[in-house]
Design a protein around this nucleic acid. Structure first.
Lengths: 129, 129
DNA sequence: AGAGTGGCTTTGTGGTGGAAAGTATGCGGC
DNA sequence: GCCGCATACTTTCCACCACAAAGCCACTCT
């Protein structure tokens, strides 16, 4: 096939960071993005409707990816974990969001085109099995 | 904790359909959304920069989920597979996109708030480990 | 002191994305 | 006619990972 299609890879969305492109983590990071002071483990848990185990696991992943900073401390004698977006994390989040925006643009364009009536004609030379 | 936070579950994004919320499949479906007449296997392959095996698997998933219709035919003697978004698929795609939009809104709001200087003060009662 | 709760971490597992390998057919050269 | 290479997929395999369940520790209440 013609490799020089202008549209080659048009919908590949390579910039969609795997670490961020994940329901739960997307929620976590988005909620963190809004609060420069960070959020507590328990707040995140209820904001994102996650179980303890789940949140813990995702936070570890995000931390290892350098996206969040995790500060373990105490409130009185009880452990209290504070999570913040790192600068690096903020950067990557913004990049990710930019790609999402382009996905959305594609989607909008698509639904415009989709208004056209679907032709009943199959591509030339095509014959059903 | 107070369960009646107005923000409970605010960032849970429950509507983010797992089948669609996937780099590769998101690309596939988005490209299909624009063309009511569908696309051929090979076109999808190059549009989304997928390997044959990958594309094949994702198409099966999408078909089993009732999102795409797959028509296997022949062009001359060579097999030729045509893929189209089903009506159901179009519906689910639009729902998904709507959720994506709200993620984006959250992100925009977040970056507005993030303009505020990050306070150096840790939450009350918090002491580093 | 024993039951209950809050705040996490660790373990177990079923599911899945993607690479690699496999199948089947067609075409061109010699 | 068959050898090699290409097209058009499908199937197999594996490493990873999201999520649930169980575990852990400290505090509180009674």
């Amino acid at each position: 096939m013609n490799d020089n299609l202008p549209d080659e890879g048009r919908y590949a969305y390579e910039g969609l960071d795997r670490v961020l492109h994940e329901k739960a983590r997307l929620g976590i990071v988005t909620s963190l993005a809004a609060r420069a002071d960070g959020l507590l483990f328990t707040d995140l848990k209820s904001l994102c409707n996650l179980t303890d185990g789940n949140l813990s696991r995702h936070l570890t992943v995000l931390q290892e990816a350098g996206i969040v900073e995790i500060h373990k401390g105490y409130r009185g004698r009880r452990p209290q974990t504070l999570c913040r977006l790192s600068d690096e994390g903020k950067k990557r989040y913004l990049d990710y969001i930019a790609v999402l925006e382009s996905v959305l643009e594609d989607a909008v364009e698509a639904s415009k085109l989709a208004k056209k009536v679907r032709s009943k004609v199959l591509p030339e030379g095509f014959s059903p099995a």
